[in-house]
Amino acid sequence: MSGAAAASAAPPRLVDPFGRAIAYLRLSVTDRCNFRCVYCMAEKMTFLPHAEVLRLEELDRLCAIFVGLGVKKIRLTGGEPLARRGVMTLFQALSRRLRARELDELTLTTNGSQLVRYADELAACGVKRVNVSLDTLDPAAFAAISRRGSLTDVLAGIEAADRAGLKVKINAVAQKGVTEDCAVPLIRWAHGRGYDLTFIEVMPLGDVEGEWSQRFLSLAELRADLAQRITLAPTPYRSGGPARYWQVEETGGRVGFITPMTHSFCDSCNRVRITCSGRMVLCLGAEAAVDLGKVLRESDDDRDVEIAIREAVAQKPKGHAFGSSEARAPRASARPISLTGG
């Protein structure tokens, strides 16, 4: 088949009603996690029944369909993705698409606690970089936030990722009463090891203990506070995500700010999110979702799933409503962050 004929035979790419081409899939492989971070999960969580969670083979099939529709980047999330039993078989399956150049990047977001065990395998599967969630280097503050996590395990996991050749980026959720004191030490530590660091605003998602607004810290406020202690200069650097970066003169590193609450970044949204049960979340800040898992299990014909995906993308909203009064009282969505990843 000629190049022109092959192009004409390929299915049309995914484009939402606002002209945004969808090239990035964030796939949750589990809603479970070995931590219980206060802004993400309740202390006593009710998890999905195992029967509702897609098998790894089903997740691979779903990824294949999205790749066929033009998705070039896949990020596996959770919960904690590396807590899922057998998850490396999914990484291995997806790595074949990297080798075939059907996929440009395969990566993950992790709490870091399992990287000692899996970093070398991830690198062997073609994973080049990982995002590690780490809000503080203070052991007491870390224990209070994670409730079940070990800072020692996370730091050892980050070191293992380094040894395996994985590029590390640190994600920190900004929290009132915590981040003001932790931010500068975290920046200096990350930059001293060559890691970019991104701060993220708390979002009003899920049924967690306490009112989210009590934890909320505006990143404009945080940046102004940081500017009193370190020298920040704006930079045009972009990582492909919603973060806006600033250069730190004293360290030579970059600090990113993701501001879902105070400054929308929806105009450039090129992603969709799928839960571990196969529900395609139309926007992180809304309840609406389409059950692709049901279609996947009811039909062996990938074209049926493709139709459902296109119908879902056609419903993708222009942007989230995090900044609205409706979203702030009390939650934009009852769906926990652990169900979709951030």
Rank of each mutant, 00 (worst) to 15 (best):
264 S>M: 07
327 A>V: 03
303 R>C: 12
79 G>K: 01
252 G>C: 09
141 A>F: 03
87 V>G: 02
323 G>N: 13
51 A>F: 05
127 V>K: 12
243 A>K: 06
57 E>D: 15
192 G>M: 13
82 L>F: 01
29 V>G: 02
254 R>N: 15
148 R>H: 12
111 N>G: 09
275 T>E: 14
106 L>E: 09
51 A>N: 09
255 V>N: 10
250 E>F: 13
59 L>I: 10
114 Q>N: 14
93 A>P: 00
326 E>W: 10
293 G>R: 08
330 P>Y: 13
295 V>Q: 01
201 E>M: 08
115 L>Q: 04
329 A>F: 09
271 R>W: 04
225 D>E: 15
122 L>M: 12
164 A>P: 08
102 E>P: 10
172 A>M: 07
257 F>T: 08
66 F>D: 01
25 L>P: 11
119 A>I: 02
34 N>F: 00
299 S>A: 15
313 V>Y: 00
167 K>P: 00
111 N>R: 03
171 N>W: 06
125 C>L: 12
280 M>A: 04
273 R>M: 05
249 E>M: 13
19 G>H: 09
293 G>K: 06
153 D>N: 14
90 L>C: 03
64 A>E: 13
126 G>N: 06
108 L>M: 14
267 D>P: 00
209 E>A: 15
123 A>C: 10
60 D>M: 01
185 P>C: 04
326 E>P: 00
323 G>H: 12
36 R>I: 09
128 K>C: 05
230 I>E: 05
50 H>D: 15
23 A>Q: 08
337 I>W: 04
233 A>D: 13
272 V>E: 03
71 V>I: 11
308 A>V: 06
102 E>V: 09
93 A>F: 03
269 C>W: 05
127 V>T: 14
310 R>E: 05
140 A>R: 15
33 C>P: 08
168 V>N: 12
266 C>P: 02
214 Q>Y: 01
72 K>I: 01
16 D>M: 06
237 Y>W: 15
278 G>R: 07
285 G>A: 15
106 L>T: 04
158 I>A: 08
117 R>M: 02
157 G>M: 06
157 G>Q: 04
269 C>Y: 05
280 M>T: 03
47 F>E: 11
64 A>T: 07
32 R>L: 02
130 V>P: 15
302 D>W: 05
5 A>M: 13
48 L>W: 11
291 D>T: 04
206 G>W: 11
321 A>I: 14
279 R>I: 00
5 A>I: 11
178 V>S: 07
103 L>P: 09
108 L>R: 07
196 D>C: 02
200 I>D: 06
81 P>W: 05
169 K>H: 06
264 S>C: 11
238 R>I: 00
95 S>D: 12
143 A>H: 11
211 E>Y: 10
88 M>G: 09
227 A>L: 08
